[in-house]
Amino acid sequence: MANDSGADVLVSFKDVQKTYDGEHLVVKNLNLDIRRGEFVTMLGPSGSGKTTGLMMLAGFENPTHGQILLEGRPLHNLPPYKRNIGMVFQNYALFPHMTVEENLAFPLQVRRLGADETRRKVAAALDMVKLGHLAKRYPAQMSGGQQQRIALARALVFEPKLVLMDEPLGALDKQLREHMQLEIKHLHRDLGLTVVFVTHDQSEALTMSDRVAVFNEGVIQQIDSPGNLYEHPRNSFVANFIGENNRLHGTVGTVDGELCTVRLDDGTQLRAKAVNVGGAGSATTLSIRPERVVLGTATNSAALENHLSGRILEFIYLGDHVRLRVSVAGHDDFMVKVPIADLDPAWREGDRVDVGWKALDIRALDPIAAA
């Protein structure tokens, strides 16, 4: 959990819980501080509590226990429209009977801004998303990408302290989605926005965020920078949810400082980084990324403490690299990522191949059931 102190903290969740039926907690003891100007993503599978957390911050849900602070002030008695928070939804939520400029003017009129200032702010917001030429159109006359830009402009037009985004790109196709990811990221940087973003798409979270809070079963499993989440997962859930991951199941032998020995189910002995393990004899699940595995003659390096024999089962061509599915230590779904330049042209499906990796590149974590 993150609990940053100081004047730069804009939002604080303090021991927040939420239940709908009085028995099952959808959010459990959420403690999270979000700094001014930060882009924080709440990431997790459906039902993990991430959207409920966002809805409580927006004011559409109330915490069952605990409190949420904005600039040090509790929000529990403040209705959504008085929180000065911008919202962007997946379904755009634009008024279909209003033109683009009328949609953008609406939150300013609610705040009783004068007509001249409203026109100026609407023009500036449309210019920001490069859609000034569509001011007189209705939402139905625009593409999905254009509607999402207008929804974003409407969330920013009244210059809120905080912008909340709930799966805002989920309805867009892949190419437009990736373009909008960069556009939102640039707006965040250029305008100094504080953004809380909800998604179940881990690649989207890694691309856009300063920090990512990974939710599961109402609890933040880890909150960290995208790089640390990927390279240094603290438990098996995070290792498997973030990026591609190979899992091997075994039993801890010895623990010596940051390293441990692990005996796999087929008897293979490995050395691994001891991250989240019990003592000797306890079960563990090992995690290693496909790009950290080396094949063939490269395994002769003295830097590789772990050496196994494998058999190539499948080649999956992906342009700049090839994924090889390899049978290793009784696992037929072990994936290895090989750059095109490093691929041995002599390799064929069915070939035996040496497999190796560094001890510090494989992490011994809490046990999960074998698939």
Rank of each mutant, 00 (worst) to 15 (best):
L57E: 05
L57Y: 06
A58V: 08
A58K: 09
A58S: 13
G59W: 00
G59S: 02
G59L: 03
F60V: 12
E61K: 08
E61F: 00
E61I: 00
E61W: 00
N62W: 01
P63M: 06
P63S: 05
H65T: 07
G66K: 09
G66F: 07
G66P: 12
Q67A: 08
Q67H: 06
Q67S: 14
I68D: 07
L69T: 03
L69Y: 04
L69R: 01
L70H: 00
L70N: 07
L70F: 02
L70Y: 00
E71P: 02
R73F: 00
R73E: 10
R73M: 04
P74W: 00
P74N: 05
L75K: 10
H76P: 06
H76Y: 05
N77E: 10
L78E: 14
P79E: 02
P79T: 01
P79F: 00
P79L: 03
P79A: 10
P80K: 14
Y81T: 09
K82Q: 15
K82A: 15
K82P: 15
R83I: 08
R83Y: 05
N84E: 13
N84S: 11
I85N: 09
I85G: 07
G86S: 10
M87F: 09
M87Q: 10
M87P: 11
M87W: 00
V88I: 14
F89E: 06
F89C: 03
Q90G: 14
Q90P: 13
N91T: 05
Y92P: 01
Y92K: 03
Y92G: 03
L94N: 08
L94S: 06
L94Q: 01
F95I: 09
P96K: 11
P96T: 04
P96D: 08
P96E: 08
P96A: 08
H97N: 14
H97V: 04
H97C: 04
H97E: 06
M98R: 10
V100G: 03
V100K: 06
V100N: 09
V100L: 03
E101K: 13
E101N: 12
E101I: 14
E102K: 11
E102C: 01
E102P: 02
N103I: 12
N103W: 14
L104F: 05
L104T: 09
L104V: 03
A105S: 15
P107W: 01
P107Y: 03
L108K: 09
L108V: 08
L108R: 03
Q109Y: 10
Q109F: 04
V110Q: 14
V110G: 04
V110W: 15
V110K: 15
V110T: 13
R112M: 14
R112L: 15
L113C: 12
L113H: 14
G114V: 10
D116E: 15
E117C: 07
E117H: 11
T118R: 15
R119D: 13
R119H: 14
R120S: 15
R120V: 05
R120Q: 13
R120D: 10
K121E: 06
K121C: 05
K121A: 04
V122S: 10
V122R: 04
V122A: 13
A123K: 15
A123E: 12
A125G: 00
L126I: 10
D127K: 08
D127R: 08
